Simulated scan of single mutants.
Amino acid sequence: MTLTLTVSDEVRTLAPGFTHVTIEAYDLVNGPSTDVTSALLDDAARRLAVRLDGRAPHEDPHMVAWRAAYTAFGAKPSRTRNSAEALAKRALADGGLPRINALVDVYNAISVAHLIPVGGEDLDHIKGGMRLVRAAGDEDFVTMAGGERAVEHPEPGEVVWRDDEGVTCRRWNWRQGPRTRLTEASVNAIFLLEGMGPDAGLAAAGAELAELLEKVSPGARVTVHEPVG
């Protein structure tokens, strides 16, 4: 099974510097966070601090480029931060990064260490192909509110990831819906690394993520697809 992933012309016009790397992984074994994945998160926070050298995450050139892209489709980047900036702020704060499960810990560690948005989707819950589009505004985004299922709709023109069933992630990579997120029962996944501009470092981050996936889930079949811009 190979997932079809497309980026609409409208998004490419909005952000011509956008690039992405995808990693497909099958026969994964997920589970609770471990000492190994916890150590990866701690190390990622240290690597981030070295990279920033006293700056705030939003001052990093890559985050500046992401903020410009968010502003271009009408989002307020200081209020709805891209996933990498939001994780980076948590990594540097008291309490550090959350421990979710082994696979999520691994891709969060890569996101923080390289300061790039990284997401993981359960392939068995994606309907049809994944598409990065500008929303019409009537698409369903199924989420949870107060422990109950709730349906939201993106703003017209908002950049979203979606499949045939609805929106899987709002405001580009700001908030993922529960339907396709990785759980301890997930066995097949796609990991998406997103960058702005040629210096985002996606190739190195993708190679490191693939290596870690094989380490924490021996026997998994992992394929890294070349950067697409």
Rank of each mutant, 00 (worst) to 15 (best):
T2P: 10
L3I: 15
L5Q: 01
S8A: 14
E10H: 14
T19K: 05
H20E: 03
I23P: 00
I23D: 00
D27W: 15
S33C: 04
T34P: 00
L48V: 02
R51Q: 11
D53P: 04
G54H: 06
R55Q: 12
P57L: 00
D60N: 13
H62N: 06
A65N: 10
W66F: 14
W66C: 03
R67H: 06
Y70W: 14
G74W: 13
A75F: 14
S78Q: 11
S78R: 10
R79I: 14
R79W: 14
T80D: 10
N82H: 14
E85T: 06
L87H: 14
K89F: 15
A93Y: 13
D94A: 13
P98T: 09
R99H: 09
N101I: 04
A102G: 03
L103N: 00
L103E: 00
V104S: 08
D105L: 08
A109R: 03
S111C: 07
L115Y: 10
I116N: 03
D122W: 05
D122G: 12
L123N: 09
D124Q: 11
G129E: 05
A136D: 13
E139A: 06
G147W: 15
H153T: 12
E155K: 14
P156D: 09
P156L: 13
R162V: 08
D163H: 10
E165Q: 15
E165H: 15
G166E: 04
R170F: 10
W172Q: 03
N173E: 11
G177D: 12
P178E: 10
E184G: 12
I190G: 00
I190L: 09
L192K: 03
L192T: 05
G197E: 04
D199F: 13
L202A: 07
L202V: 12
E211R: 14
E211Q: 15
E211W: 09
L212H: 00
L213E: 00
G219I: 06
T223H: 11
T223V: 15
V224S: 05
H225L: 12
V228R: 15
